[in-house]
């Protein structure tokens, strides 16, 4: 009886968004009379950070401080339409829509400022600190706040923008079956080191090393946070979580958090991440977003590492001690596969 070490590798190409009848997102941007900007979305932020990233994208495009932008995702009944927060599409689809809406609002902001300064709007630039001035002449300036107030109360003008980003339906070629289901891919490669106890069948993940290519990491801390949490979820799916009963009776299955197995705070795994940035041409400032692929490569890498450790190929999840032990028994014992170069 022994503890066997195993190493497994997996790499993925992950499609951003989907193409079932086209994949649109809409955004609206408008200013308040005191020069703050509201971004209205129906994207739902369930922790992945679309509110933070949307705020950054709008501020960058408008040319105003990020503190002066507020994202409202309150109500999908009254907000502009979005397909939803899934398919790792939020940053890419909604981000593009926000940039378009903010671009239109910025044009109106500059026109209103031009009227106040009695100059041409095309000569105006923003300083990103809440001011608009004539290019090359910082003293010929007006604040965003004063511009918004003038637009509202003197000019009778809205500072608002509409944006939609649509990846249209891709028709299937009737001869080849070829189509373009997505617009861009993100990539990842991940290595798992683990141990398998051939007496208990228990698998313990010891180390995760990964590289993720996410376009531009628009908010590096959020990207890292999402990757760490998502990898944990991948480990959880690979080794623990199932609604299936371990024994034939359905009633023996988990019905609550006490019996639905998940790794706890004592089961965290050191995870070293390298984020590779290759800005994507069709993505908002190049950012594709990590999304679902945080978890995806973890599962096959663990299955491969278990095979490497004891020679058991598990083709169903989760890889429970029972499955590992049955596999070892079917093989007539543990069959470590060795490691090239080790």
């Amino acid at each position: 009886m022994a503890i066997h070490h195993g190493r497994g590798f997996a790499s993925i190409n992950y499609p951003i968004g989907m193409n079932l009848g086209g994949d649109p997102s809409q955004a609206l941007v408008h200013s308040t009379p005191d020069g703050k900007f509201k971004v209205t979305l129906s994207s739902i932020d369930l922790g992945q950070g679309i509110k933070s990233v949307g705020r950054q994208l709008a501020a960058e495009t408008l040319g105003v401080p990020v503190e002066d932008v507020f994202v409202d995702t309150a109500d999908s009944d009254t907000g502009p339409h979005d397909m939803g927060s899934f398919a790792s599409r939020g940053t890419h689809r909604m981000g593009n829509a926000i940039i378009r809406a903010a671009t239109e609002a910025r044009a109106q902001l500059l026109e209103a400022a031009a009227e106040e300064l009695e100059v041409d709007a095309s000569d105006l630039v923003t300083d990103g600190r809440g001011n608009i001035h004539v290019r090359g002449a910082p003293s010929r300036s007006i604040s965003v706040e004063a511009t918004a107030t003038a637009a509202q109360f003197n000019q009778g003008r809205t500072l608002a923008g509409r944006g939609i980003f649509l990846v249209p339906l891709s028709e299937v070629d009737s001869v080849t079956g070829e189509m373009t289901p997505v617009s861009s891919f993100a990539h990842a490669a991940l290595i798992i080191d683990l141990t398998v106890d051939d007496e208990t069948g228990e698998v313990e993940v010891q180390n995760i090393n990964s590289a993720y290519e996410v376009g531009r990491a628009l908010n590096p801390r959020l990207v890292e946070q999402q990757l760490i949490g998502g990898a944990w979820m991948g480990v959880s799916h690979a080794l623990y979580e199932t609604t299936e009963p371990n024994y034939p009776e359905r009633s023996h299955g988990p019905i609550d958090f006490n019996h639905y197995l998940q790794p706890g705070p004592g089961d965290t795994v050191p995870h070293h991440i390298s984020v590779l940035e290759r800005p994507a041409p069709d993505a908002p400032f190049g950012g594709k977003g990590p999304g679902e692929m945080c978890a995806n490569p973890v599962l096959p890498a663990i299955a491969n590492a278990v095979f490497n450790a004891v020679g058991v190929e598990c083709d169903s999840l989760p890889i429970t001690p029972e499955k590992v032990l049955r596999g070892i028994r079917a093989n007539g014992g543990a069959r470590p596969q060795g490691r090239p170069g080790a």
Binding site: I228, W232, G264, G266
Partner: peptide
Amino acid sequence: ISGNLCRCTGYEP
């Protein structure tokens, strides 16, 4: 914190 479940962060942060 072993009695507190978290589904997002992986506990490490």
